[in-house]
């Protein structure tokens, strides 16, 4: 009797392990497929060339530059707004209908498909505000997209700080802002950092909203340099430049028939997966170290 029940249990354990193996195996398979198809193309020429009609001469340089610049905009806009919103919700907001509304919209935005953000950007940034299909538009779109992630993870990090810490600070006469700036933020910094890294790693791989705002799929030039040789040595012309990003470049190559372009796509995918995995790995590591160190 017990034996039979134990038999079921052993059987289920095998089932559970194989289900997990399927998930983990897929990751390995995915990486393996990209590696086999793409590693041959991933060389210096590939990294430093412009797209080309000839698969073997094509490269990813404009996409890498484009991704970097878009991420710069996204980070500069998305992170301050997200962190500020989180601090407000956790430390300042009282329970009113307004905070209720904010919370509901944050959870809801987190579940909105990314392509809907693309439509928003197309209607609002591209046409109504007249920003066109520019790096600025793409950066702002992705900033809105990662906002919920930044807010949620920052709030979680802040919430993990025990209330006694705040009380201790208040008891010493600190104001609310001093408490936040001197205690809450520094203690939750690594948690917030984890969230930011995860959010940016998501943004860098986003394709659908960038397609909708009209990124180019074939581009033979770089955006103007942010540095100039004349005072004031900084230029923001690049913000309005047309662009492409890595996932778009990969998408363009996947959609073209022919094995040569598939190899290019795999190489771009390898780069992309490598970057997101590295960022996620970093986030997991930061979180792991933090959990080890924190003692409350």
């Amino acid at each position: 009797m017990i034996k039979r029940r134990k038999f079921f249990e052993a059987w289920f354990k095998a089932l559970g392990l194989s289900a997990l193996a399927l998930a983990v195996g897929t990751l390995v398979l995915l990486f393996g497929a990209l590696l086999i198809d793409g590693i041959g193309r991933l060389d210096w020429q590939f990294l430093t060339s412009f797209p080309s009609r000839h698969a073997s001469q094509a490269g990813i340089l404009p996409a890498v530059v484009g991704s970097t610049l878009v991420m710069l905009v996204t980070a500069c806009v998305g992170i301050p707004i997200g962190v500020a919103a989180a601090i407000y919700l956790e430390e300042y907001a009282r329970r009113t209908w307004l905070t209720e509304l904010i919370e509901v919209t944050v959870t809801n935005l987190a579940g909105v498909p990314s392509i809907i953000f693309g439509l928003l950007a197309l209607g609002l940034f591209v046409y109504m505000l007249g920003l066109g299909s520019s790096i600025l538009t793409a950066g702002l779109t992705l900033a809105l997209l990662i906002l919920p992630v930044v807010i949620v993870t920052t709030r979680e990090a802040i919430r993990a700080i025990p209330v006694q810490i705040r009380e201790a600070a208040f008891a010493l006469g600190a104001t609310r802002w001093q408490t936040v700036a001197d205690h809450v933020l520094p203690y939750s910094a690594s948690g917030i950092l984890t969230g930011i890294i995860l959010a940016l790693s998501r943004a860098i791989g986003e394709t659908a909203p960038i397609v909708t705002v009209g990124a180019l799929t074939f581009i033979a030039f770089l955006p103007p340099s942010p540095m100039t040789d004349q005072p004031p040595y900084l230029s923001f012309e690049w913000l309005m430049s047309p662009f492409t990003v890595m996932p778009i470049q990969m998408f363009a190559w996947v959609s073209r028939p022919g094995e040569d372009f598939a190899a290019n796509a795999a190489a771009a995918g390898l780069l992309l997966v490598g970057m997101t995995l590295a960022m996620n790995g970093l986030a997991i590591y930061v979180r792991y170290r933090m959990r080890k160190r924190v003692s409350w």
Partner: peptide, 14 residues
Amino acid sequence: LELLGAVPTVVYGY
């Protein structure tokens, strides 16, 4: 599993 969820969707398309 988190890594599995972080792979860009365009790569999944491939």
